[in-house]
Design a protein around this nucleic acid. Structure first.
Length: 124
DNA sequence: ATCATGACAGTCT
DNA sequence: GAGACTGCCATGA
């Protein structure tokens, strides 16, 4: 009998939060992804809000490109003008992601994981 | 066990 | 395209 695929992956032991961190880390500089997309890629479909929860509660020790995660509309999740939104915009612009009216154009900057990433980095 | 909350998302005006 | 509304689901009180 062929062993089930899960037992072959290294990431299947990770907690849900760890899988989300792992996935967020894969977003390349200059690209962005929606909360729901991260949840899907992390093997947690329907848990976009949980992604937000995890990012909000990031351990200080952990450094993640949290600023590359946006609403499905391309908007920054924080209300425009708040310190958090301003901070996130600055971080995005540092890597040449254009932000206007608290929003990013997903067609232009949305991350499309390569087949290689899907097959080798996102095996949950 | 219930209830409110939220760094969400899809649909309908 | 911007709200309003609803569904969603992990947490925490």
């Amino acid at each position: 009998m062929i062993k089930h695929v899960e037992s072959l992956s290294e990431t299947d032991k990770l907690t849900p939060a760890e899988r989300i961190w792992h996935t967020v880390r894969l977003i390349p500089p200059g690209k962005v992804a929606a909360y729901g997309k991260i949840a899907d890629l992390a093997g947690l479909p329907g848990r976009a809000r949980y992604v937000g929860y995890c990012l909000r509660n990031l351990p200080d020790s952990l450094t993640l490109p949290w600023h590359r995660v946006l609403l499905s509309s391309g908007q920054i999740a924080f209300k425009a003008g708040t310190p958090q939104a301003i901070r996130q915009q600055a971080l995005l612009e540092n890597e040449h992601v254009r932000v206007s009216n608290n929003r990013v154009n997903l067609t232009e900057f949305g991350w499309q994981p390569s087949l290689d990433v899907l097959l080798h980095e996102l095996v949950f």
